[in-house]
Amino acid sequence: AVCQRCQARFSPAERIVNSNGELYHEHCFVCAQCFRPFPEGLFYEFEGRKYCEHDFQML
């Protein structure tokens, strides 16, 4: 399997985020606008991209 964002493979010891069947490295699972991790894992999706609450409100 490969990361949805960076397309790199996962190492066996690595923590992986699964979002609706899409797999991400922990450091790749970030807001599409500000590139920060999601507070408490909370995000909003718009047109296939994931956003933090602040950036989602700015759309």
Rank of each mutant, 00 (worst) to 15 (best):
A1V: 10
A1D: 06
V2C: 05
V2L: 08
V2R: 12
V2Y: 09
V2N: 08
C3H: 00
Q4N: 15
Q4W: 03
R5F: 04
C6T: 00
C6V: 01
C6Y: 01
C6F: 02
C6P: 00
Q7E: 02
A8L: 14
R9S: 15
R9F: 03
R9C: 08
F10M: 12
F10W: 03
F10N: 02
S11C: 08
S11G: 12
S11F: 06
S11K: 11
S11H: 04
P12S: 12
A13C: 07
A13T: 13
E14D: 10
R15A: 07
I16V: 07
N18P: 07
N18F: 14
S19Q: 10
N20F: 04
N20M: 08
G21P: 03
L23A: 12
L23P: 13
H25C: 13
H25F: 00
E26V: 13
H27M: 04
C28Y: 04
C28I: 01
V30W: 03
V30H: 08
C31F: 00
C31S: 00
A32D: 11
A32T: 12
Q33D: 04
Q33L: 07
C34V: 00
C34S: 00
F35G: 15
F35T: 14
R36L: 07
R36P: 02
P37D: 06
P37M: 07
F38D: 03
F38T: 09
F38I: 02
F38P: 09
F38Y: 02
P39Q: 10
P39E: 11
P39H: 04
P39R: 09
P39T: 10
E40Y: 07
E40V: 05
E40G: 08
G41A: 06
G41C: 07
L42H: 07
L42V: 11
L42R: 12
F43D: 02
Y44K: 11
Y44V: 09
F46D: 06
F46C: 09
F46V: 11
E47F: 02
E47W: 03
G48E: 10
R49D: 03
R49P: 00
K50D: 03
Y51F: 11
Y51T: 01
Y51N: 01
Y51A: 01
Y51L: 15
Y51C: 05
C52N: 05
C52R: 01
C52A: 00
E53R: 11
H54D: 10
H54F: 12
H54S: 14
H54G: 13
H54T: 15
D55S: 02
F56A: 05
F56R: 04
F56S: 09
F56W: 04
Q57F: 04
Q57V: 08
Q57W: 05
M58W: 10
M58Q: 12
L59C: 11
L59F: 02
